[in-house]
């Protein structure tokens, strides 16, 4: 069959909402796009563990400590599901980690911001996880089967994350003067980076059209961003706090909130590595991996020893 025929069959399947599975023929560009997007997503999950793991040892109550551990542990799980799904496309986890550790692969810029107070655990849960969920729910219907299945599992688990985040902020918002200050300060710092999580504006997002055609992506960056702003602008009222955007106002005609201009300079700078914590985050990942090398080696050496011995026993 010619490549054109294969491509036609492939696109027909996608148009008919038939999932693509690992061994099916797919265009190279589709495979590449998936590997890039899925591994980037996996990297984001495991780098994303760091700013929150920061506060596990400082969590203010035993209940908060337990839920925070469980949450960060979930993120490890999500990274793992996504790496596994990516591996079905023929790229091993070793190689993917290598790309992360050498700076060749990107991860979500949001995790290059610091977690300075306990309220950041709340703001991350509410805003960052909230934005992530908005991005991720449509991916449960992504055209690539293993990706979609991983996302279904992730979305199911993710909903507790956002709720616990909001609960943290709600408690702070009803607390002492210092706690309310903490709460507003965290919202101020996390709001714009969260809004940026949806990526560049549609007219500046070159790969989007193709991804939409392949149904790897189902809504545009700006559509999702608008939805996020609309939802958050209402939720913040329950906290009795404000979002740090003087231009945020309900637009009766559009039935949406208008909001202020995004500082894309900052966005691109953080992506380029100039965020406040880019270096620390990557170093922490590299260190964990390198410090773990002897552990992984030892387990492998032992497994090989045992299987050699069991073969010997069978022969004898």
């Amino acid at each position: 069959m010619s490549v054109q025929d294969l491509e036609k069959i492939f696109q027909d399947k996608i148009d008919a909402d038939i999932r693509i599975e690992p061994k099916d023929w797919m265009p190279d560009a589709y495979r590449k796009t998936l590997v890039r997007q899925m591994s980037q997503h996996a990297h984001s999950e495991i780098v994303g563990m760091l700013p929150e793991a920061n506060w596990i040892t400082r969590a203010p109550t035993l209940r908060r400590k337990a839920t925070l551990i469980a949450k960060v542990q979930d993120e490890a799980g999500h990274g793992l599901y996504l790496y596994s799904a990516t591996e079905t496309l023929g790229t091993g986890r070793d190689e993917l980690l290598e790309q992360l550790h050498t700076g060749k692969a990107k991860y979500s810029s949001i995790f290059n911001y610091p977690t300075l107070t306990w309220a950041d655990m709340g703001a991350i849960g509410w805003l960052v996880d909230g934005a992530a969920i908005m991005n991720q729910v449509p991916l449960c219907r992504a055209s690539y089967g293993p990706y979609a299945r991983a996302m279904v599992r992730i979305c199911k688990e993710e909903s507790f994350h956002q709720r616990q985040g909001f609960e943290i902020l709600l408690t702070l918002s009803r607390g002492s003067e210092a706690q309310r200050r903490m709460c507003q300060d965290a919202i101020n710092r996390w709001w714009w980076p969260s809004v940026m999580m949806f990526g560049p504006n549609d007219d500046a997002s070159p790969n989007s059209a193709q991804s939409m055609q392949w149904k790897i992506k189902r809504f545009s960056n700006d559509e999702l961003r608008q939805k996020f702003v609309d939802v958050s602008a209402e939720q913040v009222k329950i906290l009795g706090m404000t979002l740090p955007d003087p231009d945020l106002v309900w637009n009766e005609d559009k039935q949406h909130y208008d909001f202020g201009a995004i500082d894309w300079d900052e966005f691109w700078n953080v992506i380029k590595g100039n965020g406040p914590c880019n270096k620390e985050r990557l170093e922490a990942r590299v260190k964990a991996h390198e410090d773990g090398a002897w552990v992984r080696e030892a387990a492998m050496a032992y497994a090989e020893k045992v299987s050699r011995n069991s073969v010997k026993k069978e022969i004898a």
């Binding site: 591996e87 599992r153 497994a303």
Partner: peptide
Amino acid sequence: AGSLHAAD
């Protein structure tokens, strides 16, 4: 359910 890495 999915996959994972393990030594044995």
